[in-house]
Write a protein that binds this DNA or RNA. Structure first.
Lengths: 141, 141
DNA sequence: CTTTGTGCAAATTCTTTGCACCAAA
DNA sequence: TTTGGTGCAAAGAATTTGCACAAAG
């Protein structure tokens, strides 16, 4: 459960000014772990914030990911997906139904088991692991 | 070095009819390991195939990736990238200059060291590992 | 006041589609 | 002569930009 104040403080800790719109976008990402697109967020928040514009959603998502509060995923070739969960985990996308699921990487060190490129040659700031295939539900059909 | 005939046979082995355009796109991907966009391929091939259209490049890339001859990468949020190398490797994109480099995964089994989701729940057909950061050249500046 | 955020409309960019023509089997 | 490939122009979809107005400090 994320209270408005918790969300507000989270934004503040990343130096993001907590406007109503930003708080609601962030709250949505923390509450629903569905890795939504900008469009999905707009459609979900639009009823409760009637004046909300898609531009603001885009602006906010860009600001939040640039500030490091959220991460953006390119697991879906059509739209960018967003994830408010910054803990170490991979993602799975079902190529049939499009659902995106978190895949735990058993412990925090597991990412290091992926052979890292020589740190003298690269300064790695980000690593994304994407799985694709068919989810349990879609396999039944 | 890939002769026209080697490329032609490669396409045939994947049940892709080897038209001139398809051969040239495939040859390009095998020769240049620059993970090009559709646009880059079009611009490179256009001079030597003056009648070439971007539609055909898109058609061909879709056909080749659907047929499993090449893979498409979503490491770049703007455009889809293509890779004619199907061997097991990760990719690195420099967020400064945009260059995409192959990252060897020391041996063929390394991908399996990434904790795999329970195979009863997921049928994995594909795994992509994307690193982002700054390349050696960009770190100097 | 002055700065920053919001939101409309228009623009941009990448990609796909409809369709007519062409080429190969 | 039938099937499939190519390429033009137009459409489509996601995202960005320009700009005017509103809000907050």
């Amino acid at each position: 459960m994320n209270t408005i104040n918790q969300v507000k403080n989270k934004l503040l800790s990343y130096n993001v000014k907590p406007s109503l719109q930003r708080i609601e976008v962030m709250k949505y990402l923390l509450e629903y772990k569905n890795h939504p697109t900008a469009d999905m967020i707009f459609n979900e928040l639009s009823p409760s914030i009637p004046t909300l514009s898609k531009t603001t959603v885009y602006n906010t998502l860009k600001l939040l990911s640039d500030s490091g509060v959220i991460q953006s995923l390119n697991i879906d070739e059509k739209n960018v997906r967003y994830d408010g969960d910054l803990s170490t985990h991979a993602h799975f996308r079902c190529t049939k139904c499009g659902k995106i699921l978190d895949i735990p990487l058993e412990n925090q060190d597991n990412l290091n088991k992926i052979p890292m490129p020589d740190s003298r040659d690269f300064q790695i700031t980000e690593c994304q692991v994407y799985y694709k295939g068919e989810c349990k539900d879609c396999q039944k059909n």
